[in-house]
Each structure stands twice: as C-alpha cells, then as structure tokens.
C-alpha cells in the first residue's frame, strides 16, 4: 500500500463526504454553491497573479536556453531556427511547439537494454500522446462548461458541442472529450502506480490533482449520463454566480454540489501546486530565451564587481621567471641593491 496516494485518495473522499453531508444533512447549499466557489475563484485569481508576479520579480540574470539544434553561425551552415532560436520569432515558434504540441515530450525516448548488451533508446510515444489527449480534452471540457455561464449560448460554443457529440452515443449524446479526459487521467494515474521509477518519485501532491480531476470527471459524467441533475437549476446557479446575483435553485442533486466543491478545490489548490506548470512553462528560461548572447548582450540587473587577480598582481608574482623565459613584461625588474 502506497501511503502517498492513499493520503490523496482519502483527501478527495473526505471532500466528497463533506459536500455530501454538508448538503444532504446540514443543508449548506449556500456555502457549497455560492460562498466556496466565490472564494475559490478569488483564491485562484489572487494566488495565480501572486505566484506569477513573484516569479516575475526574480530577474533572469543569464541567458541559458537549452539548445537543441545547430546554432546560428556561418551563412552556409543550416541554422536550426526553432530548436536553437536566435530571434523572437524563433522563440515564439519554439514556445508554441512546446505549449501546443509538447515538443520536448515528443522527443522522449525510453532507455532499453537488449541482448548484447546493446543499449537502445526507443521513442516513448505514450506519455506524449496521452498528455496531449489529456490537456486538450481538459481544455475543451472547460470551454464547454461555459454554456452554463453564458446566456444566450454563443454559436461557436454550440458548434463545439456539436463536434464533441458527433457520434450519437447514448442519451444525451456522449461528449468524446469527457471520456478521453477520464481515460487519460486514469492512464496517468496507473503509470504512476505501475512504473517503479514513477512510483518512487511520485509525491502525494502528484496523486491529489489526479484524483481530483478523475473525481471531477466521474461526477460530471454521472450527472450527465447516469444520475441526472436538474440542469436548468444548475445553469441558474452558474449564471447567478457569474452575474453576482447568486441564487440557490431548488432541486439540484447533491452530486452537483460534490462536483462543484471538487472544482472549487481544484481552482483554489491550483496556485499552490505543481499545476502552476501551466503559467510556468511560459516563463521557463531554458525555453523562452534566444540563444543570441554572443551577438546581443544580455543584461544581468544585479551584476556586481568582483575581486579578480589582475595582470599586475600576476606579473608582480612571476616577473622574474617571465623575464627569464623571455616573456615580455610591463615593468622591468627593480634593481636590487646588494648589500
């Protein structure tokens, strides 16, 4: 039994229980439906801004991009403008590839030892593929939820829903992204459990967001396909929140409040967790800097003078020997008077 994921699992279960008991037994709909979501959003925004500005407050004293291709050099050598960018455009393309297509993970290999022994490094595609699937479906799911917050629902959002439910599977139509989201997070979880090195390096803080997202996905799917909630009430509540006229409509199932609490926790937890890799990747100096320091000076704002061993001190120490070896010197040897 791995304690680390048990802590996280229990934490999520406790959250679910809190919402369940709070709504079913104590009738705290106002707390779970209004107060906590507002607090969560506030924490999210404030925390997010605080963390990013905190990063921003530390300067980048040196330009240290990881170069993954040929540098800009003599005109006849092909410069890898993306993996070793020297211009802002190059950097932007590199960042786009990184953020939109997970360029670095795409490069991932798996070390394998074969008979021989011969080492081989095999392309490791699954982490890349599943991460892409996970992040994109998560994004779509997030955007899709805007239908609860926007009235009238914009056309583009309806198109998105239309595409997402292209295959008429079940009633109401299955959102493909929801299923992919659940599948991908499950994969990411199993990976942490089954790969020994992943298990070894994983912390409770790695399992917690996974359980949180899995639970959010499951409760969402349950609400849509299995144990229905009163959707108009849900939207009324959501619009109420978005327009600062919070209300608690009757008849929304407890499952919704569990979902909402988990989402609130997700948002509130976000700024204090590794989930900050989302803004972090934009600020990562090994990726967002150009490798141009040999032709464009990078300024270190706190550069300070240091003590060095000057040539004069050096010559003073070795002058005699230098002259002996025929090396030019700045000052001749002092004439030492013999006593």
């Amino acid at each position: 039994m791995n304690q680390k994921y048990m802590y996280s699992l229990i934490a999520v279960i406790v959250l679910i229980l809190i919402a369940y008991v709070g709504v079913e037994a104590a009738g705290l709909q106002v707390l779970f439906g209004i107060i906590l979501p507002y607090i969560a959003v506030l924490i999210f925004i404030a925390g997010f801004v605080y963390r990013v500005m905190d990063w921003a407050s530390s300067p980048v004293p040196f330009s240290i991009p990881s170069t993954c291709g040929q540098q800009k050099t003599l005109s006849w050598i092909k410069h890898d403008k993306i993996d070793n960018p020297t211009t802002t455009t190059g950097v932007i393309i590199r960042m786009m590839l990184e953020i939109l297509l997970f360029r670095s993970l795409f490069r991932n290999t798996k070390f394998a030892l074969n008979e021989g022994p011969k080492i081989s490094y095999v392309w490791e595609k699954w982490l890349w593929l599943v991460s892409l699937a996970f992040h994109y479906s998560f994004l779509v799911v997030l955007i899709r939820h805007l239908r609860f917050f926007l009235e009238p629902v914009p056309v583009w959002l309806q198109w998105l829903e239309e595409v997402d439910t292209f295959f008429q599977l079940g009633l109401p139509g299955l959102f493909l992204t929801g299923a992919i989201l659940l599948g991908a997070t499950t994969f990411l979880f199993l990976r942490r459990i089954y790969l020994p090195e992943m298990r070894y390096i994983s912390l409770a803080a790695d399992y917690f967001p996974l359980f949180l997202i899995i639970s959010i996905a499951i409760t969402g799917i349950l609400m849509r396909y299995f144990t229905k909630v009163y959707i108009v009430g849900v939207k009324e509540l959501a619009i109420g929140l978005a327009s600062f006229h919070p209300t608690i409509p009757d008849g929304i199932g407890v499952l919704f409040y569990i979902h909402l609490l988990l989402v609130s926790v997700f948002f509130a937890y976000f700024p204090f967790s590794k989930l900050m890799h989302m803004p972090g990747i934009f600020l990562s100096p090994t990726r967002n800097l150009a490798n141009n320091t040999r032709f464009k000076r990078h300024i270190n704002p706190w550069n300070y003078p240091v003590e060095t061993h000057t040539y004069e001190e050096y010559e003073d120490e070795f002058r005699e020997k230098m002259i002996g070896a025929g090396l030019p010197v700045e000052k001749e040897l002092p004439v030492v008077e013999k006593e």
Binding site: A112, N114, E115, K118, S120, Y121, V122, W123
Partner: peptide, 9 residues
C-alpha cells in the same frame, strides 16, 4: 521498423 531502426531483433 522500430526494432530495425534500433538495431535490435
């Protein structure tokens, strides 16, 4: 193909 590329059976 991958095995061929990595020079392993």
């Amino acid at each position: 193909l991958e095995a061929e590329r990595n020079g392993i059976p």
